[in-house]
Design a protein around this nucleic acid. Structure first.
Lengths: 109, 109
DNA sequence: AAAATACATTAGTAGATACTCATTGATTAG
DNA sequence: CTAATCAATGAGTATCTACTAATGTATTTT
């Protein structure tokens, strides 16, 4: 059985559009600070920090404090519970997953 | 860009543990009625019907009325938005394919 | 040292939502 | 025909949560 608590945390965390948008911005950038995330966002800095806390607890992001800044980066292994769940319950996911494996072989034969 | 509304509906629908459990039971069985789903569940029949409505609107299940019963079955193509969203981050994984190799082994050993 | 900057955290609030209970509509059984 | 069963829906409620505003804690700048 898939670990219920992990998939639960990941899905619940990604379900919120604002929080998911933050995660996507973290993914798109190598590293990004809270002020940078706050700029171009419709919510306040406090909300950003709260969402980052949720993302961190779900294992989706990691932080690197440096001086008064905190750099956030994506933690891809946090998506493993979701990928695992998909492999069980998503038939079509297997095909796309096969494509991903093909892609990887092209990159690193 | 991935269609925001679809991935939003799928994630929001699957985020609730009770509703996700219902979906998993529908997936596991070929076809299943509401009474069957209600048996062995901690919530009432009304709640089950409400969750099935959400799942149907998200495109995750389909129904087949027969007499006074309604048979539900999983609609795997409803997971495509989620798979697409994951694929999008497959690109992100490619940039860090060392991690991806680890992920692949964990997901599909 | 004082001011400014970066981030986290708290309290309070408005809106969302998951649930129960009751009812309704439809179909089947006695 | 009447009673029972299946499922959907509505009203009402309690809980959850995403948000703002304000404050706190470091750290850096001037």
């Amino acid at each position: 059985m898939i670990e219920a608590t992990a998939i639960d945390a990941v899905l619940r965390t990604l379900a919120d559009p604002t929080r998911r948008a933050i995660f996507e911005r973290v993914v798109s950038s190598d590293e990004i600070t809270v002020v940078e995330l706050t700029r171009g966002s419709s919510v306040t800095q406090g909300a950003i920090s709260q969402h980052l806390k949720s993302l961190k607890q779900a294992g989706l992001v990691a932080e690197r404090p440096e001086g008064r800044n905190v750099y956030y980066r994506a933690q891809p292994e946090g998506l493993v519970p979701l990928a695992d769940w998909m492999s069980h319950y998503g038939v079509f996911w297997r095909e796309r997953f096969a494509n991903l494996k093909t892609l990887l072989k092209e990159i690193d034969p």
